[in-house]
Design a protein around this nucleic acid. Structure first.
Lengths: 176, 176
DNA sequence: GTCGGACGGTTGACGCGACAACTTCACGCT
DNA sequence: AGCGTGAAGTTGTCGCGTCAACCGTCCGAC
């Protein structure tokens, strides 16, 4: 409902500026915490976390790229660095000889397990614990609505099926 | 209220992942629209927009850095490039001879005026128009709460005083 | 079969942001 | 006056992400 096509109402403007500010600050603080505690970028952590949740801790590069919202070149570079650090291994895929499988090593798994609690704590400290239960529900609702526009394909948060099931303490220690 | 210190409830997890996804996708799409339509980064646009709203379209580098959440080195680089493109001018400050004033040129002003409507349209298309009036109010509230944690100093969205006043159509065409 | 187009992935070059070192200037203290 | 600390900016270097070019592989049409 384009109210006034050319501008935003004061309330809309405040909401929009607030959202932009959050989107600016949040990633930086996540990066900074993970960099400090584990020497990882948030993106690198996401990669490891996705692998930690995958069957046999292995995923094809394309899948990994899709789920982490990365371009293939970017992922390729990042995985190479992670491989240099012994956190990930690459192996050609048997089914499709064009494809490459990325596999989380034991060291990589350990790092994720070790890092996850601090990351969750940060999520609480920066956002979750500041919100009431009702606000959490609102945030859930709002982000779902926005993602319909921002991510029409639904590539991100694809394991909504998994997250939807109220099982806990399952395999991967990750929280993305 | 740290519910379970080590993990997130399913609802919290969905809200958190949603927020992270939005924070990942939104800046990229803003950059992409502005890059396409005006050859500007979102950050460059913010710089020009802040200048367009300032008295005499001039701001000291430090002020500009604070309001755009940038480090001084980053701002210095960006302003140099903008200066090369004729959108901004730099001049030593009379009051404090250490300081530098950044001033928006006529060309810079024109570019902002020309670019703002498209940017606002993007804000609507990606977020605002997808939300009900009630949701806009919720978003405003949520971001305010989160920014208390993410930006305790309140450096971003400092012109809350200005935004708070329900005047419209004032000087700067910007919407950040 | 084989040929053309499309997919999966890697590599190299370029641009931007972070960090650290440095210069210049302001200001308080003696 | 003269000194020292710290603020304001700039510059150079390095690391990461994007883009374009590239190679190898799959697969459908004929």
């Amino acid at each position: 409902m384009p109210s006034d096509a050319l501008w935003l109402t004061p309330s809309e403007l405040r909401a929009w500026l607030g959202l932009v500010a959050v989107a600016e600050l949040l990633p930086a603080q996540l990066d900074s915490q993970l960099q400090h505690d584990a020497g990882l970028t948030h993106f690198e952590y996401q990669v490891l976390a996705m692998l930690s949740e995958a069957r046999s801790r292995t995923l094809r590069m394309s899948d990994l790229a899709r789920r982490t919202n990365a371009t293939l070149p970017r992922l390729s570079h990042v995985v190479r660095r992670l491989e240099d650090r012994g956190l990930v291994e690459r192996a050609p895929c048997a089914d499709d000889r064009r494809a490459t499988n990325a596999h989380l090593t034991a060291a990589g798994w350990d790092l994720v397990v070790q890092t996850a609690p601090g990351h969750v704590a940060t999520a609480r400290a920066l956002v979750v614990d500041a919100l009431s239960a009702e606000q959490v529900a609102q945030l859930e609702d709002l982000t779902r609505t926005m993602l319909l526009r921002l991510d029409p394909e639904g590539r991100l948060t694809p394991p909504l099926d998994e997250v939807g099931r109220d099982d806990e303490g399952r395999d991967g220690a990750s929280a993305t």
